[in-house]
Design a protein around this nucleic acid. Structure first.
Lengths: 252, 252
DNA sequence: GTCGCCAATATGTATACTCAAAATGTAAAT
DNA sequence: ATTTACATTTTGAGTATACATATTGGCGAC
């Protein structure tokens, strides 16, 4: 589990030492570090090197730096979870199961109001032509995730020519449009009707619903709704304590 | 919504320009940037400044740097969601509602097997003395979150003297033990029995269940189970596309 | 032609030195 | 007594320079 023995350079060594001191509360919240010139001489490095260490620590949120005032260990406030949302095929195959994607329908047309509501579309500028599609992700032929999606053809014109029966929409979009931004909302819902039938669940079963809006620049690329059987699926996230951008004031 | 107009320094300006170029795919995945000495002269800065920019970009995962080879725009693979999990009081008050915490019971004793199962405790080393507590978070006197928790007294000895009727456990722990690490699992479940009654929900209603294990060094600090009324509550997360640590190879 | 060694090259790390910006405490002025 | 002005201190940003390190492409030996 040991990290791949990073390069033993001055600044990485000092960085790790400082982080450890803070995590172990040897330097507790509010503690004021010596000024960077002093620290530099104490550790036998130049100010630039010590500056690199402290700047990095500040970026990671461990310390707050204020001109004329000094460098302080920050107080933890918020917790930020880094949650990897991989593509489903990888995730399913990591469990040793076979993955399969089944397209139900895909059409280029004006989306209906009900569909927009389902997908959580709030901003009115809806283009005339949108790919509306639905399908199911299977793991060993068991329903794993029900997907409903709208794709903005204006932003991704070559989506027109893609056969989403063979290409998994999410995966294709990720490959096709790297560096986009997304906003997720996660809820628990009771399934009913055709959704319950498709997922092979009793009516009223709890499901995890992820509404994802993907944005590229100023335009939306896709709205997706992913519905997972509740008990069978779970999202996991590892995280460290972090500070809120505000409330950084050192001990007064 | 505009970011608080950051300092207009050389390296931040260039950094933003490069990020934009990559996000807008002017520099697509696999694109090789000019070498840093050339870029430095092109942008009229010293190599150290350009180095700072490129190092930062590499840390953010936008580019991969290889000695002798050059700097390449990396290919997006995974998406990482950064999900802030604030303390509930702040969250509730952000909605303009009044927050209230109601303790049901808190005891120091050996936890029961059923409780450990509920909390998702898997690793056997259970200390003899554990604080087992349960309570409810209210927003405007409506049930908002049902909490069940175990606290490791060996790791947090002063938790003995805390009155968890007035102190919210999660908040107190966060203040008391900053820089801990946690692992979250998020599921959807159907509520039943006393849980449904306490949350004022019909039996079978979908709820969001968060199992959180908090670790400090090598010991566990607390296991918590947070149950949110499904339809009423949702987690949201903003995120950008990121690269996997592996699979960074430039276009061959 | 193939294999292995070597040198050229791009990044990585570090130093020493400037000047700028911001915050704080002190002293002067109203 | 309160405000204003100023000097000091600490971080922030940038430059010029040097040497280390890894990798790649070419050259030579076989």
């Amino acid at each position: 589990m040991a990290r791949t023995a990073g390069p033993e350079t001055h600044h990485t060594r000092i960085l790790e030492e400082f982080r450890q001191k803070i995590v172990d509360r040897i330097w507790g919240p509010g503690f004021q570090l010596d000024k960077e010139t002093d620290l530099a001489t104490q550790y036998g490095v130049s100010r630039m090197t010590m500056n690199k260490v402290l700047t990095q620590l500040a970026q990671e949120g461990f310390v707050v730096r204020r001109k004329r005032s000094g460098t302080f260990v920050s107080k933890a406030r918020t917790q930020a979870a880094v949650m990897p949302i991989n593509n489903l095929a990888d995730e399913v195959e990591a469990l040793g199961k076979t993955y399969r994607w089944q397209l139900f329908a895909a059409e280029i047309r004006v989306p209906q109001a009900a569909e927009l509501r389902l997908l959580g579309v709030e901003s009115p500028p809806i283009p005339d032509e949108v790919i509306v599609l639905g399908g199911m992700h299977y793991a060993d032929d068991e329903p794993f995730c029900l997907e409903t999606r709208a794709i903005n053809v204006d932003v991704v014109p070559n989506a027109r020519d893609v056969d989403f029966a063979t290409q998994v929409p999410g995966h294709w979009l990720l490959q096709s449009m790297p560096w986009s931004t997304a906003r997720n909302a996660i809820r628990a819902v009771n399934v009913a009707g055709s959704e319950a039938r498709n997922l092979d669940l009793p009516v009223g079963a709890a499901c995890l619903e992820i509404l994802r809006k993907t944005v590229m620049g100023s335009d939306w690329v896709t709205y997706a709704r992913l519905l997972y059987p509740g008990e069978a699926f779970q999202l996991t996230a590892e995280f460290k304590t972090k500070v809120t951008p505000k409330a950084l004031a050192p001990q007064s």
